[in-house]
Design a protein around this nucleic acid. Structure first.
Length: 877
RNA sequence: GAAGGCGUAGCUCAGUUGGUUAGAGUACCUGCUUGACAUGCAGGGGGUCGGUGGUUCAAGUCCACUCGUCUUCACCA
């Protein structure tokens, strides 16, 4: 007798033990088996500052399902894990912690800061990894990587130098997005726009020659200090004659020209725009076209520079107030309007971004974007669902050069040195000692680091050992599936695509599986500020990891957002418990730990039925998984396990298991084990812990369920006819139960069941089952029965009489039969109408027509039986 | 301004290339201490798939228009 299981499934007593068992068996470890096809996933590396949230839980559940499925299918699978150094986020956290200690970066210096950062990484970097393990993630932990480890750093330098040498990385003075709080540049993708209430200040700038004023409007009067022109549209008749004239800038009293530029919209505002090239991206462009001076009026923390003593040291908003007041005093303020506009904010800290001109490193995007667009257009890489390709194309087609330098210390330092003698730049993979141009030793390395996403972009190949031609790289690259949320397509997916193509000549993955966001029960985004986040670890603690995984994988389609609803996890927990109890039932009824061989000659009708249904399940689930239809796969499993297997098959087996015929009981045992074992295998990718635990307790062959072979469709267990026959029995049982329930007959009150049918052998075979499931005292099958004093139910294959004299109310029975008759007549009419439609019969596929004809036949059968029954009853009245 | 998602039972959502008279979970109602499971069993009520029009033998599924809702991108100072 196998191990006794507890009455309820207790995830806590199972999960850590099973995870340890898997680790001990090294089942997660990819062995580079050259004779097998490979299947590779690289994890989207969570930030070292991060804590597991529902997004990770979803992302990792999906990856684990895929990897476990492929592993069981016999692929050489690698799921490569790791973490991201998350330069800006991590640095911000460390700086904040230092602030609490009264320290600043400058005080402890770069070296001291980096020591702290690495300590931080050591302390917290492992936390999220441990949390991923709680989810059951079967990552190859022996291959765990970090974006700043030696190998990844080497790849970063390699790529930087290669792109620099190709002219695809350059350094230039451009207007970039600057975060005054993080004190670094950020890329376009890192700016989030939000609607903010503001003002529209109408100002007038006087002409130098005293010929009046030009009126314009601005939302940012403080940038007036840096105005170097005023622009109008060249086609604007109102202002055509004014182009080329000179204005006096209020407050500053600098002379600035009126220029003509297409950028100005004639019908917006007054059709006149002040131009501040240093603090507005559009103005910067205008400035370039007209050779305007760029005057920076703000410091790196967005305060007015010392060049304007009156306002120096004021931050942007103070300065705005002061300047508006002064403009008013000077008579330059015409009026103030309420105005709502979009303001760019830093995606990390939410501070309003300040466009700023500075010297930064950029990646030239056009030449890189084109092959990346092409690779998706020609299908080398596919998005699931395909609609996300549009987002991908949209980003790549409208892409601007990527600002990759960050004024941060935590990250990959830019491998560029500046020569104090010749002024040229030396870019090198190795630590440069002398200037590559003049040999001078007076060189200093660029203090900046690279955008975090620069290293993430290389993740699919840097983690496999590239630029070395390692075994792993040769064997596992390109990878197969990338699983991620739609929100990071522009940050990450796109950049991995062009980096992979440029560096390795191959797309980094063949499929991008996109999922949505996990929202709260009201559909709001989970966020720290709202405090509506649900901690996956708490959910695991309450319901178990399998229940959480099951909930996340069910009931939503790829790419769509989903809500986290506690009740759903509870339902998943109940499902786990159902499975657990099915296992308990089987175990209680076994006499040995042997796997009993199947003997098709001994199969009962129900055995053939369940095996046939199992076949359908195996094909369906496998196909769904291969097409990334995880939700549909799991729905099929749920229905099969609960409905087909537990509610019907197990119930039916009870007769044989408790009966006197030991051989029949053994047949039932053998089929129970066989079907249940396949169920465990099919369910394993979704609910790995409980299935492994049960499998280990059941008779089994092999070491572990997680490395067992994925079930295959078995042609020898195709029993279509038997399946249909069995369903005739089910129909009768359901009909009897239904009628009994309607009449409020308790299960304890058994009744004889007489079945009048054209399929006597089928119903004879189902005798025991009908007794058990239709609460029958005995079952008689025959051609004709005495109907007087009986309750009758009619299916499409049988008329069932139950002698229940005391309950029979002829009028009520008649009414019920009439109702059934009406329904059957409607059915008949429905199918007849269809089949009488010449268009349908001639154009619809034969199989569909056949199906409808069969339905009609069934309806006709039933109709005939109902009519006969009613006629008989009328006589009894 | 542009692109896209969503709108199916009270609630949360499935519904694969158009093809049995639309499904699940949950909630609700009625029964049930049926020795795997009350985290259970049996039965039931409840949607015509936002609206209008079209294509088709056939539409929740395709097309057009429309209403509501959400998201992303862009943006006029």
């Amino acid at each position: 007798m196998a191990r006794e299981l507890a009455k309820q499934y207790d995830p806590k007593s199972v999960e850590d033990r099973i995870y340890g068992f898997w680790l001990k068996g090294k089942y997660f470890h990819a062995k580079c088996e050259l004779n097998k096809p490979t299947y590779t996933i690289v994890i989207p590396p969570p930030n070292i500052t991060g804590q597991l949230h529902m997004g990770h839980a979803l992302d990792n559940t999906l990856q684990d399902i895929l990897i476990r499925f492929k592993r069981m299918q016999g692929f050489d699978t690698l799921w490569l894990p790791g973490t991201d150094h998350a330069s800006i986020a991590t640095e911000a956290k460390i700086v904040e912690k230092m602030r609490q200690e009264g320290l600043t970066k400058e005080q402890i210096g770069r070296e001291g800061f980096l020591t702290r950062a690495w300590d931080w990484k050591k302390q917290y970097g492992g936390r999220i990894i441990e949390q991923l393990k709680k989810m059951g993630s079967s990552c190859d932990w022996d291959r765990e990587r970090f974006t700043m480890d030696e190998g990844c750093s080497k790849a970063v330098k390699e790529v930087f130098v290669k792109l620099y040498e190709k002219g695809l990385i350059y350094r230039g003075e451009r207007i970039i997005n600057w975060c005054p709080h993080c004190k670094t540049s950020i890329s376009d993708a890192e700016v989030e726009y939000e609607e903010q209430a503001g003002h529209f200040w109408h100002l007038r700038y006087p002409f130098r020659d005293g010929s009046g004023y030009l009126e314009l409007a601005t939302t940012r009067p403080e940038t007036l200090l840096g105005d170097t022109a005023v622009a109008v549209n060249p086609n604007d008749d109102r202002y055509r004659d004014l182009v080329g004239k000179t204005l006096i800038l209020p407050l500053v009293h600098r002379e600035i020209p009126v220029v003509a530029d297409e950028y100005v919209e004639m019908d917006f505002g007054t059709g006149v725009v002040k131009i501040t090239p240093a603090h507005d991206p559009n103005d910067f462009e205008v400035g370039l076209r007209h050779g305007l001076e760029v005057i920076n009026v703000l410091t790196e923390d967005a305060k007015i520079t010392a060049d304007y003593p009156k306002y120096a040291g004021m931050d942007r908003y103070e300065a705005r107030k002061a300047i508006v007041a002064d403009l008013e005093a000077e008579g330059a303020l015409v009026k103030t309007e309420e105005y709502s506009h979009n303001v760019g904010t830093c995606y990390r800290c939410g501070t309003t971004v300040e466009p700023r001109v500075s010297k930064q490193w950029f990646v030239k995007m056009k030449p890189l974007a084109e092959p990346a667009i092409e690779a998706v257009k020609n299908g080398e890489t596919k998005f699931v669902p395909a609609r996300f390709e549009k987002i991908y194309f949209h980003w790549l087609e409208n892409i601007r050069d990527w600002c990759i330098s960050r004024q941060l210390w935590w990250g990959h330092r830019i491998p560029a040195w500046y020569c104090a003698d010749c002024g040229k730049i030396t870019v090198s993979k190795e630590e440069a000692k002398v200037c590559a141009h003049c040999g001078s030793e007076k060189i200093t390395q660029d203090p900046d680091t690279l955008d975090t996403w620069f290293s993430s972009a290389l993740w699919p190949f840097s983690t496999l050992g590239w630029p070395e031609e390692t075994e792993d790289f040769k064997h596992y690259y390109p990878t197969n599936t990338l699983v991620t949320g739609y929100d990071i397509i522009p940050f990450w997916v796109m950049r991995m695509m062009f980096s992979g193509i440029e560096q390795t000549g191959q797309v980094p993955f063949d499929t991008v599986l996109i999922h949505g966001l996990v929202r709260d029960s009201q559909g709001r985004k989970m966020s720290k500020s709202l405090g509506n986040g649900v901690d996956p670890l708490e959910v695991i603690d309450k319901y178990g990891a399998d229940a959480l995984r099951f909930s996340l994988a069910t009931g939503n389609s790829p790419g769509n957002d989903m809500r986290y609803i506690d009740e759903r996890v509870e339902a998943s927990r109940n499902f786990a418990n159902k499975l657990w109890n099915a296992a308990r039932f089987i175990l209680m009824n076994l006499h040995s730990e042997e796997v009993l061989p199947l003997d098709p000659a001994a199969f009962a009708l129900e055995d053939k039925w369940i095996l046939s249904k199992l076949n359908t399940l195996i094909s369906g689930v496998t196909e769904n998984l291969e097409k990334y239809e995880l939700g549909m796969a799991i729905q099929k499993l749920y229905d099969f396990i609960w409905d087909v297997f537990c509610d019907w098959y197990i119930e039916i087996c009870k007769s044989r298991l408790n009966g006197p015929d030991e051989q029949a009981a053994n047949t039932a045992r053998s089929v129970l084990i066989a079907v249940f074992t396949d169920i465990l295998k099919l369910l394993h990718p979704f609910m790995p812990f409980i299935t492994e635990e049960i499998w280990q307790s059941m008779p089994h062959e092999g070491e572990a369920l997680m490395i067992a072979e994925w079930p295959k469709f078995a042609a020898e267990y195709e029993f279509a006819a038997e399946e249909a026959d069995f369903e005739k029995l089910m129909a009768v049982i359901k009909a009897v139960r239904n009628r009994r329930a309607e009449m409020n007959v308790p299960p304890s009150k058994k009744a004889k069941v007489c079945i009048e049918t054209k399929f006597p052998e089928v119903f004879a075979a189902g005798n025991a089952m009908i007794c058990r499931l239709a609460y029958a005292s005995e079952v008689e099958v025959g051609e004709q029965f005495e109907s007087e004093g009986t309750v009758r139910v009619i299916t499409d294959s049988a008329v069932v009489y139950m002698p229940m004299k005391e309950l029979v109310d002829i009028e009520a029975e008649l009414a019920r039969l009439q109702k059934d008759l009406q329904k059957a007549e409607n059915d008949k009419e429905f199918f007849e109408r269809k089949l009488n439609n010449p268009g349908f019969v001639s154009k619809a596929p034969a199989a569909v027509v056949e199906q409808q004809r069969a339905q009609l036949d069934k309806a006709l059968e039933k109709l005939a039986m109902l009519r006969a029954g009613i006629a008989e009853m009328e006589k009894m009245k």
